[in-house]
Amino acid sequence: MYLIISRRSILRKANYFVPLQEIWKITDRMENRSIVSIADYGKEKIQYLLDMAAEFERQPNRTILQGKVVATLFFEPSTRTRLSFETAANRLGARVIGFTDPKVTSSSKGETLKDTIKMVSNYADVIVMRHRLEGAALYASEVTHVPIINAGDGSNLHPSQTMLDLYSIYKTQGTLENLNIYMVGDLKYGRTVHSLLMSMRPYNPTFHFIAPKELEMPEEYKMYCKKEGIKYVEQTDFTEDTIADADILYMTRVQRERFTDLMEYERVKDAYILRADMLGKCRENMKILHPLPRVNEIEQDVDDSPHAYYFQQAQNGLYAREALICSVLGIEP
């Protein structure tokens, strides 16, 4: 009944004629296939998910998850992410259970995360969860045999956002290799830029970090780049000229509450706003991404530009999440 075999032993036995993707598929069926982080995924696994997302974009409505139950446990509310996951599950024919507000569950009565996860594991085939505490998703994946998809745990990780970012980059550029990726705004607290940075590791990117001093890329990520041999440039100027060589312009929100020095905020708040007149010198293939919601960091007049991609990016989230759900269930599109 039980087949105990490690991924490594399969790799050893696999010889050379089994494509890596096949090995992933085989091993995924036997292990806990939770997706807690994709920061350390290799090219093969990412490509597998990208191809699957593309397949879902071609035909988003299918019945391949008929009879499956997807639980969405939002211990911390996030309407946008939850709707995207629930739409993904519904469009594939699954049924959705869950809660959107921890106040209505017994976790507000002091039930442990472990007990809640154990309870839901009796009902669901996959658990999508968001939690305010860092490491919650990893811990959840250790206490259940049901695969967990991390929909964000504190400021820690948010792999489904990263997956849709990767898919958006791949789709618009035709590749993930050798791209100039410019990250703008709040690089200190923006977890999406941190996850994206780490996930791009295998693709020889060149990063430009454009941020005010107080919100610059944290030292640990610069160390990460150095250790992994990832090229990066830091700058504070955000102008038509400084973004001319970008393939991807990844905008983030500069929030007032992130500043300890409000004078500094007043000084820089308008310096990281993208306007249509700054796009005159940019590359033809350049696309503007933003994890949304935006406030004012991208002017409305940019929306009509062929470079604006943030709304399609959000739509790609549906295909990326369809791919993630199927991947953890070991189901092919």
């Binding site: 995360l113 472990k114 505490l133 490491g135 990893l138 811990y139 400021s155």
Partner: peptide
């Protein structure tokens, strides 16, 4: 805000630098 401080569970740390005594929370 680490889960280990909010849930009755065991902590796990990886020792990343023995000389400097740097550890990383799993």
């Amino acid at each position: 805000v680490c889960i280990t401080n909010n849930e009755p569970m065991k902590t796990v740390f990886y020792v990343t630098d023995k000389e400097k005594g740097i550890v990383k929370c799993r």
